[in-house]
């Protein structure tokens, strides 16, 4: 079983039970930028550090590492 969603307009497919972070990793190693423009990506993997924040279905600030990937999701990295 897989789930299809879109990351920055690109269709990706991840196994059922995967998080949004896994889907983004298939597209880009960079999830966002620091306030000084440095590339950033998940650090803690468990919802603590907020380094994987991105926009899911128009809602900003969501943590990719604890958000289950669901069919049809529209994900925007902060890259």
């Amino acid at each position: 079983m897989t789930v299809r969603l879109e990351v920055d307009g690109r269709a990706v497919e991840v196994p059922d039970g995967a998080t949004v972070a896994a889907a983004v990793a298939l597209v880009s190693p960079v999830f966002g930028r620091s306030s000084r423009g440095a590339p950033r990506a998940p650090l803690c993997g468990m919802g603590v550090c907020f380094e994987c924040r991105l926009t899911i279905d128009g809602v900003p600030g969501r943590r990719a590492c604890i958000e289950p990937a669901r069919a049809g999701m529209q994900v925007r990295t902060h890259e």
Binding site: V14, P15, G17, A18, T19, A21, A22, A23, A25, A41, P42, L43, C44, G45, M46, C65, A69
Partner: peptide, 13 residues
């Protein structure tokens, strides 16, 4: 990443 951190990410695809 964290050590447990990458493990958590890996388990979730």
């Amino acid at each position: 990443t964290g050590a447990g951190g990458l493990q958590a990410l890996a388990k979730q695809g």
